[in-house]
Computed example of a mutant assay.
Amino acid sequence: MTTHDNLDSVDAKITARNVFVYYGDKRAIDDVSIDISAKYVTAFIGPSGCGKSTFLRTLNRMNDTIAGARVEGDIALDGVDIYKSSMDVVQLRARVGMVFQKPNPFPKSIFENVAYGPRIHGLAASKSEMDEIVERSLRRAGLWDEVKDRLADSGTALSGGQQQRLCIARAIAVDPEVILMDEPCSALDPIATARIEELIDELRGNYAIVIVTHSMQQAARVSQRTAFFHLGRMVEYGKTSDIFTNPREERTKDYITGRYG
């Protein structure tokens, strides 16, 4: 595996070392090590079934929900092992939020979708504080002006692109440190996709952001760091500009020039 020089170990938010993931006897991730910076958007690219989403899900223990899945190796958030038995997984998932491929708002009002997490975690002492959190989160997700007059309407009544921004607002309402995005635009039209990409760019620097994407153009547009996965291994990791213009590994070059994938 090639890691380009001078990457982000100094300001790493998440460090993964020698990570293997198994589903029963099947090895889905094979010895991946990476530092994920707090300052940048990191994209995971690679052909379908290469392990990029599986690896993403190890970063907030979403694989815990899959029967027969087990993770080996070390993954640390701010230097603390997230797989140690004393780790509060609910708290971890508040710190490391997740936005899924298909928008999945709760069957509740727009307001309640955003208020749900802060309420569980006791982040608002009063109704006015909760109102503030909801407004701030919707503003950050670029949705406030579109929904401010209908906060009592169901979140599921919004368009697909609006639903995905609502899910991003829901993720940031609990003040996470990391946002994981698993192909957040694959179910959206080009206009909604462009809006989500703008949003990712606006959020960069406030959160460590990791995005899994099938679209190399999207990775090139939104990320500053890119990891290329193939057959469960991370083949190459570096600055996005280097990965796309000057990849060191033949397999990376083949994928980026469209020879396979």
Rank of each mutant, 00 (worst) to 15 (best):
V90N: 15
L92Q: 11
A94H: 15
R95H: 15
V96A: 04
V96F: 06
V99C: 08
F100L: 15
F100C: 11
Q101S: 03
P105G: 00
K108M: 15
K108T: 12
S109I: 02
F111R: 14
E112R: 12
N113C: 10
A115G: 08
G117D: 12
P118F: 03
R119F: 09
I120S: 04
L123C: 08
L123S: 05
A124R: 07
A124N: 09
K127G: 03
E129I: 10
M130N: 02
E132V: 00
V134R: 05
E135L: 00
R136E: 13
R136A: 13
R139K: 15
R139C: 02
R139F: 10
R139S: 00
R139V: 10
R140I: 05
A141S: 08
A141M: 06
G142Y: 07
W144Q: 03
D145T: 06
E146Y: 08
E146H: 11
V147F: 09
V147H: 07
L151K: 03
A152P: 01
A152M: 08
G155K: 10
A157C: 09
L158H: 03
S159L: 07
S159W: 04
G160E: 05
G160A: 05
G161T: 10
R165C: 07
C167W: 01
I168W: 12
I168K: 00
A169F: 15
A169I: 14
A169E: 11
R170Q: 01
R170D: 07
R170W: 14
I172S: 02
A173T: 06
D175H: 15
E177F: 05
L180Q: 03
M181H: 11
E183A: 09
E183P: 05
